[in-house]
Design a binder for these strands. Structure first.
Lengths: 222, 222, 222, 222
DNA sequence: TATGAATGAGGCTTCATTCAT
DNA sequence: TATGAATGAAGCCTCATTCAT
């Protein structure tokens, strides 16, 4: 069984932290909580207007502080996007890791579980996932490459699961695992574009039907 | 068999054109050709940098004219985007219409043909399709609604093809055609994100494998 | 005696201000003072070059800040004009209110007082009044309507003073008060076009002679 | 009796004329007629939008030709304004000349006639007069000076009429003719701001009531 | 005369970011 | 931490004017 490696906190981002210089101790969890609020505000705003179109002012408004004050929590608008994408990646990667960590699952069962959890996560975190998939290109060259590298690693694990199933004869032999991974991801990811929470469709239903579709696509004889 | 109606040339058109209003000019195609060049330049630039990030200057540079001169051909940056999206829609809708016009095809054959042609088109017109799917949100309220309305119509035709196959028992009865259309589109559309022309993968191969995947997803028993 | 109502502070006010919305600031007047400086600079520039011809750059120059910085104080060039006109209207309306508030005056005495004060005010605030009467048309439809509505109300009060005098037989019975108000205003307002402060003519002299002329025009038998 | 001199075709404006260079003869009255059409279109447009706000495009639209073509008839936008103002001045000056040319009139009768004709003319040529009085400042230094010089001459003739009446004791001795001329003009000119043709008020009525008002202002004892 | 493409300058506005308080 | 004034660069768009055809 494949083993995902530590999922790319590499560049590590020694970012300015609100609990940094001046008066080091005194407040501790507050800084982190505030940090999280900033990320949430940014998520909401970036999703609503698109990263490029959203302004730092919008985020400050969402937080109820002034634009200038926001710079106590961020280095730049782009760094904020990166943090968001990085956080998203952590969570998406964690799902894969959890699924891979479960013992005793056959490849196809594992794949179905993976897709199910992933789609459910996406349905429940639409804004985050929308930004994750829609706005990577807005990062600087270097950061974009880091994110894409992480994704590629992630995709390779999924592809290797397909390959495993293929070796067991459960997936047609003439199917290209890496190529098919793209179709699988397409169905899964595209959810961020059409799913509307609050409608009659529950996340579980989306997850289950999407997994059905994908499993069919993988296993159907040619 | 369902019949798609004329696909939404209704709203947006009173645009400025070099061959524009007052007293129809005597030139016969130069204007239109230049118009097309503008669209192509915009396509290139919007794809490379994203609509929001691309500047009118970039497009003018691409054309080798001054920024101000570009406004002989467009009303605004946004109108240019709309024209692009509208044109894309025409072409995408044309594919569906052609496929629907063929007589004697069974629903599933028709669906496979549709997917194949659509994916091949996308592979060959990556920039256009990337913009078509990635940048709709940047349109003004009104124009966005028009585009989305057109798409919804398009999707309904595809869903109705699935329903037809379902009635013939070729697709599981418990599958929701409208919902499944989303997964189908996901696989198909996502191509714009990962396909790289010039690599070893030919458009026809992408089209064929994508169609296989989707047909499997539609027809596999639960 | 008629009573002018609060003169139209209804519409236009939700403007951006350095002392603006979110969490009322602790500063006590600096913001307002700067605001006033902006208005004064704009008054000077608009008067010198005409609203349409004046640039935001000119105003920024006058203030010694950058063009972009000016937008901390204004929403748009047009909103700035509106603020100017609104302020002017407040002051002009205040004069009328004061004159109407004095008790024990006969209509014609009141009219003479009104004209005198108004003309004196105009002579002393040429730039403001010039803009007030010269540049209303440059406002957006909605704002122009608000300003004109205010003026109409103002004029009606003046007309009603004429009507009062008429009832007492002090003004010819065949004279139309509303129509005559226009002539009265013409003489009064036109001052902004020809009066040059710093010349040998004092504001009081202009006011007195203008009032004489107008009272003659009102009362002379036909 | 005073004699107005030739009213300022001085600077003369050797303007580009459509009947100028290439193929001198052939069309004769056509050129002048077209010229007049251009002036009329400009009058309409400048009045509707204000000189500074009106574009050359607007005028071309009004004429049904293209912007570039308009430059066959004008040298520049400003020159067009000047032509307009110059023409207006000719007509306004002509009224004064005619009134001065009539023999056997007493000064006050002459004044009343002058005001009456002038106001009637203004009421019937609102657009022209509005531009004449509203947009002089938009001319270049030199041309503005020429126009204002012409006006000053005109005003002096009116002032001298007042002085004549004063010498006959028909106007209070303590009244300053030049100063009073300003009030007189104010009432007369302001008509361009409030009169609406097509309403119930006929030009003759405006003229008569305005003249009444002004004569009252001139003759009433202090 | 008329066209219409192109110019080039300038105008209004937005915005990420900095910094003194 | 928070403020809010200011920066400076850039973006979109308009427009008077020119010119080859």
């Amino acid at each position: 069984m494949v083993e995902p490696k530590a999922s790319g906190r590499g560049t590590g981002r020694a970012r300015k932290s609100p609990a940094k210089a001046r008066r080091a101790p005194a407040n501790k969890g507050t800084g982190a909580r505030r940090d999280q609020e900033v990320l949430e505000a940014a998520t909401k705003v970036f999703h609503a207007r698109g990263y490029a179109d959203a302004s730092v002012q919008d985020i400050a408004d969402e937080l109820g502080i002034l634009k200038g004050s926001l710079y106590h929590y961020i280095d730049s608008k782009e760094e904020l996007l990166f943090r968001l994408l990085d956080e998203s990646h952590q969570e998406v990667a964690a799902i894969l890791e959890e699924v891979l960590a479960i013992e005793g699952l056959e490849p196809l069962e594992r794949l179905r579980l993976y897709v199910t959890r992933q789609v459910e996560y996406t349905s429940k975190n639409l804004a985050k996932m929308a930004i994750y998939y829609h706005d990577v290109d807005q990062l600087s060259e270097e950061r974009r490459k880091e994110v894409l590298r992480n994704r590629r690693t992630h995709e390779r694990f999924v592809a290797s699961l397909i390959a495993e199933a293929q070796e067991r004869g459960e997936v047609p032999a003439d199917l290209d695992p890496a190529l098919t991974t793209n179709y699988l991801f397409g169905s899964m990811i595209w959810v961020y574009r059409w799913y509307r929470p609050g409608g009659k469709l529950r996340p579980q239903q989306v997850a289950a039907t999407c997994a059905d579709f994908i499993m069919g696509g993988l296993t159907a004889p040619r």
